[in-house]
């Protein structure tokens, strides 16, 4: 106990926190890419272009049905064979973005479809174009509907990013294993890694909840108050 708190933590925590910084960076970057990708894929799947719809549907199905760790390994070890050599960090960002993007596209699609229908007809019936209707009517509502789910996916991504330690990204878990290979204190170090993940994740969840509240627009607050 004494050793854990007064020797191991002061000695190795700074190194673990360096890894934690990379965990946060890779998660935030991947999330930004995944949101953009997911929204574009959702819009593409709702378009009139049949080929595009089929290609995007295939992407979503494939990425949702292969384990994330396998996707990361394929990207990290296969792309160099095609002459594309990505450093571990960027391979990780690519892998996580493609994976979460596939899930988020379904979130966006559902949110958009929940607004479509009547309000789209109403927009059309006063002469608005499809682009206008999406920009002014559907997306402002759909994006807000999607916010809580996106927040949930971000928390999940923070934790799933531990998998990129397998492709040599020096993030939190990998820094932990490096320390363990030097000290053989696996129980204590893994415990420290777990504590750091918990703290990052817990704080992020609070931030997400706050963002969610501040993004809830007046029209939804009245609807909720009356429900």
């Amino acid at each position: 106990m004494y050793e854990f708190f007064f020797v191991l933590i002061p000695e190795y925590m700074p190194f673990l926190l360096q890894g934690a910084l990379v965990t946060v960076q890779i998660s935030v970057l991947s999330m930004i890419c995944a949101i953009s990708l997911g929204l574009l894929v959702a819009l593409g799947r709702l378009s009139n272009l049949r080929v595009l719809r089929a290609v995007l549907a295939a992407y979503v199905e494939i990425w949702r049905n292969v384990p994330l760790i396998v996707q990361l390994l394929v990207i990290y070890f296969s792309l160099p064979q095609l002459g594309i050599s990505l450093p571990g960090f960027w391979a990780g960002v690519l892998g996580l973005s493609l994976n979460v993007g596939a899930y988020l596209s379904e979130v966006f699609r559902a949110a958009i479809l929940s607004v479509e229908g009547g309000q789209k007809d109403a927009g059309l019936s006063i002469g608005m174009s499809r682009v206008m209707i999406y920009r002014r009517v559907i997306l402002p509502q759909a994006l807000r509907i999607a916010v809580p789910t996106i927040g949930g996916y971000f928390i999940a991504l923070l934790k799933d990013s531990a998998l990129v330690s397998y492709i040599a990204v020096n993030e939190l878990l990998r820094h932990g294993t490096i320390v363990i290979s030097n000290t053989f204190k696996s129980m204590e170090i893994y415990l420290m890694v777990a504590m750091v993940y918990f703290i990052i994740s817990f704080i992020s969840a609070r931030i997400v909840a706050h963002v969610e509240r501040s993004l809830t627009p007046a029209y939804l607050r009245v609807a909720q108050a009356q429900a």
């Binding site: 009547g118 309000q119 109403a122 019936s125 006063i126 002469g127 608005m128």
Partner: peptide, 26 residues
């Protein structure tokens, strides 16, 4: 369409816009 707008059975107001904003959008 802009010259023959439709009034719907289920109103189909823009839910995120106030009454006035619904009217001035078009």
């Amino acid at each position: 369409r802009a010259q023959m707008p439709m009034v719907f059975q289920h109103f189909n107001l823009f839910a995120h816009r106030t009454a006035l904003e619904n009217v001035i959008e078009g």
